[in-house]
Simulated scan of single mutants.
Amino acid sequence: MSASAASAAGPRIVSMNVCSDQLVLSLADPDQILGLSRFSRDAWQSWAAEKARNFPRLSGGAEDVLLLKPDLVVVSLFDKRATRDLLKVNGLHLVEFTVPRTLDEVRDQIRAMGDVVQHPDRAQAEIARLDAAIARARAVASAHHYRVLPLERRGFVSGDNSLINSLLAATGLTNAAGELGLGTGGFASLEAIVKLRPDFILVSEAGDRAVDEGRAFLLHPALERFYPEARRIVLPERLTVCGGVMLADALDRLTEELQRVTR
C-alpha cells in the first residue's frame, strides 16, 4: 500500500499493549488493525477481550510485527525497551503512550489515539460519553460525601496518585487512603483498615471464594464482619486497570453499585 493510499484509508496499526489494544479497538476501523497484544483476549485485563478475538494476537516480540509491516506501532513505555528499539532500528514508526493517572490524562489519551487512527470524531464522542457517565455518578454520590477505601489483594490500597483516586474525586467521593498516610498507595494492615472505618471498601470482585492468599485477605472474617456485601462496591478490574473509553462503563457500574449499597 502506498503512503497516499494508507493515509486515505487510515494507517494500518499494530498494538503491543493491552491498554492500547482497547483504545485502538474502540476508535479504529477493523481493517486498520493488523494485530493486538498477547494479552488482548484476557477478559480479566481487557474490557474489549471478546472483540479482540476478531484480530490476530501477537507474540510480544518484534519478529511478527516486522512481518506485518504496519504503518504505526502503538506501544506503552512499559513494553520492553529492547523490542521497541529493534522496531525503531527497522524503520517502524512507534507511538508511545504512558499509563494515565487522572481523568484529564485519560481524555488526552483518547483524543491522541483518535488523531493516531485518524478518527478524531470518534474520540470526541467517547470523551462526551465519559463526561456524561461522570455526571451520572456525581448525581448519585456527591450529596453523601462517602469515604471509600480502594482495597486490592493482600491489602494494597490505591492512593492519591492513582486513576481510582481521580475517578472517586470526580464523582464527589473521598478516597479514605489519605487518612492512612500512604500517599501514592501501599499496603495497609487489617487492623488499620478496620480502625479507619470507611463507609465502603471498593474491590474488584464479589463472592466468597479465595483462590489464593492475596484474595483471602479480602475475605478475612474481620473484614467480612465490618464490610459485608452491602458495604462493598465492586468494580471489575478490567474496567479500571487501563485508562480509556471503558471508564465510562466503570463509572456507570459505580453508579449502579452506589444505588445498590445505599438503598
Rank of each mutant, 00 (worst) to 15 (best):
A5L: 15
S7C: 02
A8H: 04
A9L: 13
S15C: 06
N17G: 09
N17S: 12
C19W: 04
L25E: 07
D31C: 02
Q32C: 13
I33E: 11
G35W: 13
L36S: 10
F39W: 14
R41F: 01
R41H: 10
W47F: 15
W47L: 01
N54W: 03
L58G: 08
E63T: 08
E63C: 09
V65P: 04
L67W: 10
V74L: 14
V75E: 07
L77T: 14
L77V: 11
D79I: 04
R84S: 09
R84W: 02
H93T: 15
L94E: 08
T98V: 13
T98F: 12
V99Q: 15
L103R: 10
V106C: 09
V106N: 08
V106D: 10
V106W: 08
R107S: 06
R107M: 05
Q109S: 09
V116F: 03
H119I: 02
H119Y: 00
D121K: 13
R122M: 03
Q124V: 10
E126N: 06
A128R: 09
A132F: 00
A133H: 01
R136W: 00
A137L: 02
R138L: 07
R138I: 01
A139E: 13
A139P: 00
Y146D: 13
R147P: 01
V148H: 00
L149G: 06
R153M: 11
R154L: 14
G155T: 07
F156D: 05
G159A: 03
G159Q: 04
D160I: 05
I164D: 00
S166C: 02
L167D: 00
L167K: 03
E179M: 01
L180Q: 00
G181R: 00
G185D: 11
F187V: 13
S189R: 03
S189T: 15
R197V: 07
P198W: 01
G207C: 12
D208M: 11
R209M: 09
D212Q: 10
A216H: 04
A216K: 12
F217Q: 05
E224L: 15
I233L: 15
L235C: 00
R238D: 08
C242A: 00
C242Q: 05
G243L: 05
G244Q: 10
M246P: 03
A248H: 04
L251P: 06
L254Y: 11
E256S: 12
E256Y: 02
L258V: 06
